[in-house]
């Protein structure tokens, strides 16, 4: 099951890459670096999330910071 999801993610990433890469101008070096960086960040995050779905996320972090205020609203 998990290998399937990982394969699916890789296919999706490959499709994004194949679609977008030829469209970036050869002169836009910085864009290429950012594109690759963001895409690999996404891939790594996706694989981590597939292997460990209960990873505490951004919502938990924000909830932790704002909890004292949130308690004001009760419950």
């Amino acid at each position: 099951m998990k290998t399937g999801f990982i394969l699916g993610t890789l296919v999706l990433v490959a499709l994004i890459f194949l679609y977008e890469w030829p469209r970036i101008n050869r002169t836009q070096k910085k864009e290429k670096i950012v594109f690759i960086a963001l895409l690999s960040l996404g891939t790594i995050l996706a694989i981590v999330l597939i292997l460990n779905p209960d990873l505490p996320g951004p919502t938990q972090m924000i909830d932790y910071i704002y909890k004292p205020l949130g308690r004001m609203l009760g419950k």
């Binding site: 994004i16 895409l39 996706a46 996320g57 951004p58 919502t59």
Partner: peptide
């Protein structure tokens, strides 16, 4: 990031959005 065009990063950001939407709540 001082890029000259925002179009190349649309799909990578969209992929991140999908991950964040899954990650944000169980």
């Amino acid at each position: 990031l001082n890029l000259s065009d925002y179009r190349p990063i649309i799909f990578p950001v969209g992929f991140l959005l999908l991950l964040f939407s899954i990650w944000s709540a169980s």
